[in-house]
């Protein structure tokens, strides 16, 4: 348990598994004896829209949402989502960006161009930026849907959380039939940082 509140912002596109990810991270924080709050988005915003889950933990947490300039880590499941939420990051915070590209409507319809180099612009602004093709790692582990757990691995390793704690949480949350692939994907991610 720690006095300072840790703030983790998990951003992505509805359907990418941000909800499950925030639940794994929150479970780890609970196991480690923290007060925890998680704010989720359900409903309309899930239909392929931009989604955000917020995890806050520490000795005592009040607000369930993270203020701008306060996040210690942004975990981005998609490139431009990292940039969209960047103002929530502390100036010395960390960003982990999955290079997956999901075209939003204005790009699909040709009204706007997808800013393909946006992750490099983020990296130029934020010294502690890590860019990863988690989707590719997940595919190699046996299931494209495990990309979120690759990112959980990187996050927990970067934060110095023991792997066993996270594996315990994954085992508690992920359905049994997907567990093996998820643990493999987690370990791949964990050793990257």
């Amino acid at each position: 348990m720690q006095d300072k509140i840790t703030n983790i912002l998990i951003v992505g596109v509805g359907g990418q598994g941000t909800l499950l990810t925030s639940r794994i991270i929150a479970q780890v924080a609970v196991q480690m004896g923290n007060d925890v709050k998680v704010s989720e988005i359900h409903g309309m915003a899930q239909r392929g829209g931009s989604v955000v889950s917020q995890v806050r933990y520490g000795a005592k947490v009040f607000s369930p949402i993270i203020s701008k300039g306060e996040a210690d880590i942004i975990l981005a499941f998609e490139k431009i989502e990292a940039a969209r939420w960047l103002d929530y990051l502390r100036p010395d915070g960390m960003v982990i960006i999955n290079t997956e590209r999901v075209n939003p409507l204005p790009v699909m319809s040709g009204k706007m161009k997808y800013p393909d180099d946006i992750h490099e612009k983020v990296a130029a602004l934020i010294p502690k930026t890590t860019i990863v093709d988690a989707t590719d790692i997940a595919v190699r582990c046996g299931n494209i849907r495990a990309a979120n757990v690759v990112l959980v691995g990187m996050l927990s390793s970067a934060m110095g959380i023991p792997a066993e704690e996270v594996e315990k949480a994954i085992t508690a949350i992920v359905p049994a039939k997907a567990l093996e692939v998820n643990l493999k994907a987690f370990r791949e991610g964990y050793q990257l940082m």
């Binding site: 509805g14 239909r47 701008k68 306060e70 940039a83 969209r84 939003p104 706007m112 800013p115 946006i118």
Partner: peptide, 20 residues
């Protein structure tokens, strides 16, 4: 004071929800 903005979100296309 309002926290500093990196200004980068202005380069990002909106992502409204859409039919599957």
């Amino acid at each position: 004071p309002a926290p500093q903005s990196f200004g980068i979100e202005q380069e990002v296309p909106a992502r409204p929800p859409l039919l599957c």
